[in-house]
Amino acid sequence: MTDLGFRYDTGHPVPGPPNTNLADILERVLDKGIVIAGDIKIDLLDIELLTIRLRLFVASVDTAKKAGIDWWETDPALSSRAARSALQEENRELRTRLEALESGFRDTVSADA
């Protein structure tokens, strides 16, 4: 950090929260500000911000799991394949049983007729 010569002079009367986190800064310096066309085309659009967040998210899934947060498990896009295949399995089985029952029922009906 220091080798690049950036200075964070915390004593400066800077308007800006003292402990600003990166996401707060990025959503302002990337997304906002008055947009004036530059000569050098640089594509730093929203999608990039999403990518960063997604990456941060992926990195901390384990930590979040430990904290008991599991909302993504109900998200179809993120839910575990295991749960879905178990449901499919059971569906298949129920369908088979239903068929068996229905054919048995039909047999009964035809026998009565």
């Binding site: 941060l56 990195a59 901390s60 930590t63 947060i69």
Partner: peptide, 15 residues
């Protein structure tokens, strides 16, 4: 309105 941060950003793990 800004986009709510996803869990796991520096903001912690609260939605």
């Amino acid at each position: 309105r800004l986009r709510p941060h996803g869990p796991g950003t520096a903001d912690g793990h609260r939605p």
